[in-house]
Design a binder for these strands. Sequence first.
DNA 1: TCTGGGGTCCTAGGACCC
DNA 2: TCTGGGGTCCTAGGACCC
Length: 395
Amino acid sequence: MQGYFFAVVVYLFVMDKAKPNRIIAHLDMDAFFASVEERYTPRFRGLPIVVGSDHKNGMGRGVVSTANYKAREYGIHSALPIAKAWQLSEEAKKQGKPEVIFLPVDFELYEKSSANIFRIICKYSDFVEPASIDEFYFDLSSAKNFKKAEIVCNKIKEEIRKEEKITCSVGIGPNKLISKIAAGFKKPDGMFVVLPVEAESFLEPLLIRKIPGIGPKTAEVLNGLDIIIVEDLKKFSKDKLKDLFGKWGEDLYYKVRGIDDSPIVLEREAKSIGEQSTFEINTLSALFVSDELAKMCRSVFGSFRTSGFDKFKTIAITVRFSDFETKTSAKTLKTELTIKNSKELEFEALKLVLPYFDRRKNPKLKQIRLIGVRIENLVKLNNAERQQNIFGNNY
DNA sequence: TCTGGGGTCCTAGGACCC
DNA sequence: TCTGGGGTCCTAGGACCC
């Protein structure tokens, strides 16, 4: 009996060491782009604000990037076509409500704010992952318990409020999955803690769409199988989920049980650099499009030069037709070949795009609404190779 | 309401090589 | 002879995220 007890204690100890409990926080800025704009322009305060591509008096082709909470009361939200947002604003105006302020996206402004928020979080954690411009994961295991982690997060929130004059919401949990969902629980300006023992029951009643990675398509498939909330998903075995969703299905099996071992990623290297642009008017003019393409290539090549990479092997282009059908073409260069200037990139990209202007790749001669260029297979050279690359086959 | 722009990751088929 | 199988690279497409 004593031996058994001892064995159990040893087992629990070993398991504990094998899988140390983590305390992970997720910080999500509230209506980030709109909040930053509001902060820089005090007269906007309290008014509905929409940040998005140029609205062109309701005729623009873009979508909403961020709507502040006031604008959300009008039914405006992220990804809504900007023309529709304009309409909703007009309707509200008729009812005597203030009209929406439409602002273009000023990425550099938000980047600055984002960098400062990152700096603030780094004061409290050695392991911070910037997941996007307005989201951060960080490890607070060193706080030892969730109560103390909560105190730390409150300090971070306070400091961001003081320095950046904007609010954020924080979720704390045993892993990235739980903390991210928890951060969305008490928005805006909220904080929500999920203890490890609560993780599974916390997820169960949620709609499956709340699981990151389950988008509209996956949700539709699952809803068709009568799977509505996370608890329903537990009926599926690991193999069943693997059949349905491949490699990702196996992750999902663990996710719905609150298990997620994915680490905090401190730094990640870019895998591709690209740009795309939707025309104001659909077109089949090869002259016009090749001009736009050249501009984009120059800009992409500029980003490439400041990226710290030395070579790229693949050029990929995107063409979107008027009916939204989207095609991609790619060309991977033989390793000996290196693109040395923007002109060469323009040439390769143009070769990929031109077949879409005639029946080779556009049999119905559909109008084109968007083109994009992207470079992939980015390579960094070591010093010796770099010398070669610059001074070697120089023609 | 006709639907941005910047990305990442996964899958599947075909080519090619051994 | 008419047939295997594994590994890797390339291309295209699609789902997803903010």
